[in-house]
Amino acid sequence: MLVLLAFIIVFHITSAALLFIATIDNAWWVGEEFFADVWRVCMNNTNCTEIGDNYADYSTLQAIQATMILSTILCCIAFMIFLLQLFRLKQGDRFVLTSIIQLMSCLCVMIAVSIYTDQRQDLHQKNSEQYYRFTSEGRYGYSFILAWVAFAFTFISGIMYLILRKRK
């Protein structure tokens, strides 16, 4: 049982780390001379521009930012609740609250990445010519892929918490 508990804790911490990296790092959309995410756009690895109100569909990017941040926060809260339930829960009970919060984190990641996938082309085409070339020259970066992996990890851990019973 101790090995299973250690695996679940490591799996949850890995999920949280993936969410932090995917949310913070600037590699959702990359090309030869640029990289971009939902926070800023960098050209030639030196000229970085924050994405602000002047950016077309800024509200869509704010939705992506908010859901990624919310998913990271929910994942951390689920871990803390799991640790509390580990010591407070009666034997034989399930970690339902932890599971619900972790599945909400999973849902937030899925929403953010799905919106980004759907709107990526529109977001960059509506801006100036400088940003238009992102659509044709770029590809999804590792932070975008990590966000999808974090989605899978949070989903799996949410299901694991739902199935897991507290034992001696």
Score class of each variant (00 low, 15 high):
Ile64Pro: 06
Tyr116Phe: 15
Phe35Val: 07
Val109Asp: 10
Phe134Asp: 00
Ser114His: 05
Thr60Pro: 00
Ile24Ser: 12
Ala17Asn: 01
Phe7Gly: 07
Leu89Gln: 05
Val41Ile: 10
Ile115His: 01
Cys108Trp: 02
Ile111Phe: 08
Ser59His: 06
Arg139Phe: 05
His124Met: 11
Asn54Gln: 12
Trp28Gln: 02
Met1Asp: 03
Leu2Cys: 07
Phe7Cys: 11
Arg133Phe: 13
Trp148Ile: 15
Asn47Glu: 10
Ile101Arg: 00
Ala152Gly: 15
Trp39Asn: 10
Ile13Ser: 12
Trp28Ala: 05
Thr23Cys: 13
Gln62Asp: 14
Arg40Ile: 03
Phe134Val: 02
Thr117Gln: 07
Thr98Glu: 10
Asn127Met: 01
Trp29Met: 13
Gln121Met: 08
Val109Trp: 02
Ala17Arg: 00
Gln91Ser: 10
Ser128Asn: 11
Thr23Val: 06
Asn127Asp: 12
Phe144Trp: 14
Ile8Tyr: 07
Leu107Asn: 04
Thr14Tyr: 07
Met68Phe: 15
Leu18Ser: 08
Phe82Gln: 00
Leu70Gly: 11
Phe79Lys: 00
Ile21Cys: 08
Cys75Pro: 01
Met104Tyr: 01
Ile163Gln: 06
Ala17Gly: 13
Ala16Ile: 15
Ala17His: 07
Phe95Cys: 08
Ile145Asp: 12
Leu103Thr: 05
Asp53Tyr: 09
Gln121Tyr: 02
Leu83Asn: 00
Met104Ile: 14
Phe20Trp: 09
Ile13Glu: 04
Gln85Arg: 01
Lys166Asn: 07
Thr135Gln: 10
Trp39Ile: 04
Tyr132Met: 12
Tyr140Cys: 04
Ala16Arg: 01
Ile100Glu: 02
His12Ile: 10
Phe35Lys: 15
Tyr116Ile: 03
Met104Asn: 03
Asn45Asp: 09
Ile21Pro: 03
Arg167Thr: 13
Met104Ser: 11
Thr154Lys: 09
Leu97Asp: 00
Ala16Gly: 08
Ala78Leu: 04
Ile69Asn: 02
Ile51Thr: 05
Tyr116His: 05
Leu84Tyr: 09
Ala112Glu: 06
Thr67Asp: 08
Glu32Ile: 07
Phe82Arg: 00
Ile8Lys: 13
Met1Asn: 07
Gly31Pro: 03
Leu107Met: 12
Ser136Leu: 08
Thr60Tyr: 05
Ser59Ile: 12
Asp53Asn: 11
Ser114Val: 06
Leu86Lys: 01
Arg133Glu: 12
Ser99Arg: 09
Arg40Cys: 02
Thr60Val: 15
Ala66Ser: 14
Leu61Cys: 09
Ile9Phe: 14
Thr154Ser: 15
Ile111Asp: 03
Gln130His: 11
Leu74Arg: 04
Ile163Ala: 12
Ile100Tyr: 01
Val10Thr: 13
Ser71Glu: 08
Cys48Ile: 08
Phe11Gly: 07
Gly52Ile: 06
Cys108Ile: 11
Arg165Ile: 13
Gly92Ala: 12
His12Tyr: 02
Ser157Phe: 08
Leu19Phe: 06
Met1His: 10
Lys166Cys: 13
Ile145Met: 14
Met43Arg: 04
Leu123Ser: 00
Ser99His: 08
Thr117Asp: 09
Glu50Gly: 03
Asn127Pro: 02
Ile64Ala: 04
Ala56Ser: 15
Trp39Cys: 01
His12Gly: 08
Asp118Thr: 11
Trp28Val: 00
